[in-house]
Computed example of a mutant assay.
Amino acid sequence: MSNQTTALPTPEQFNALVRARRSIQPLQFEPGRVVPDEVVRELLENANWAPTHKRTEPWRFVVFTGAGLQRLATFQSELYRSWAGASVDEKKAQKLAQNPLLASHVIAIGLKRHHILPEIEEVEAVACAVQNLHLSAVTHGLGGYWGSGGITYMEAAKPFFGLDKEDQLLGFFYLGYVQNAPGRNIRKPIEEKVTWVRE
């Protein structure tokens, strides 16, 4: 048996990774360039190692790629049109029909409900899983974007993604190669958001 341990990133390397993460819109992806499925599987495996209270592992992912992107695009644009009726926003409908086609993969983000825990704890676990996924994407030079608009909170969308009534659809993670270098990210100083209690 080997005594070698897994080499961990240095604090400096990890700091650089976290601060390099950006939300990259699908319009910023390289058209037609496809991420290998084995890379996507690696990202999902890292997502699977997120913290989870009582080990419920509530995250569920449906991965769309190839012709599956058109299937997703058609489903969500038609569901939105049906839901909106006479009040349909054509610009929004077109965006729903086109955005998936700009990505290499679109990952639907689901929450499988476990009633032994408050729902908020399950949401928090799924969010940690998505952060793992997104940071992993950065290490591969990929762009990622977690969108929660469109059909995300429509009850009628759930069955399409294998979710039951008590489950939640929490949005879509768009994945692709970045066409242009992402811009500078900005955060307000941490001192504005932290209170220290020392006595």
Rank of each mutant, 00 (worst) to 15 (best):
S2E: 13
E199A: 12
G144C: 15
T195I: 06
T5M: 07
W49I: 04
K112Y: 00
K188A: 09
T152G: 11
V34P: 01
R19S: 13
N48I: 00
L96E: 02
A73K: 09
Q13W: 06
N180D: 15
N46I: 02
I107F: 04
C128H: 09
L135Q: 07
V123E: 07
Q13D: 14
A20N: 11
A50G: 13
T56R: 12
A137G: 12
A73L: 08
T5F: 10
A129L: 01
F173V: 15
G68E: 13
Q28Y: 00
L117T: 13
E155W: 05
N180G: 00
G143M: 03
F172T: 13
E199M: 09
S77M: 05
P26C: 01
G150M: 06
V197Q: 05
P51K: 08
E119R: 07
K158H: 11
N15C: 03
Y174H: 13
K188D: 11
R198I: 03
V63N: 05
N180Q: 15
R198E: 11
L175A: 10
A93H: 07
G162F: 09
V18R: 04
D37M: 06
R19P: 00
V126E: 07
Y80I: 04
R33E: 12
K95Q: 12
E90S: 02
R187S: 10
M154C: 01
A86N: 10
G176N: 11
A125E: 14
A93W: 03
I120D: 13
P36T: 00
L170D: 06
N15G: 08
T74G: 08
T5G: 14
G162N: 08
K91E: 14
Y153P: 03
L101S: 05
G147Y: 11
V40P: 02
G143R: 12
S136R: 04
V63T: 12
K165A: 15
I107T: 04
H115W: 08
L117A: 03
S2Q: 08
A73F: 11
E155D: 15
N132R: 01
L111I: 04
A181M: 06
I120S: 10
I186D: 13
V138P: 02
P26T: 07
P31E: 00
A50S: 15
M154W: 04
P189I: 01
L175C: 06
L135K: 01
L44T: 06
F75M: 09
A20D: 12
K54D: 10
P58K: 12
P159F: 03
K54R: 14
L43A: 12
E45S: 05
A73Y: 10
I24N: 06
V123C: 09
G32K: 02
P159A: 02
H105A: 02
A97H: 02
Q70G: 07
F61H: 08
A156R: 14
E78A: 15
L135T: 04
A50R: 11
F29K: 02
D37R: 13
K95C: 00
K165F: 09
K158T: 06
P26M: 02
E57A: 11
W196S: 06
D167G: 14
S87F: 07
N3Q: 13
L43D: 03
T65N: 14
S23N: 09
E12P: 05
L44G: 07
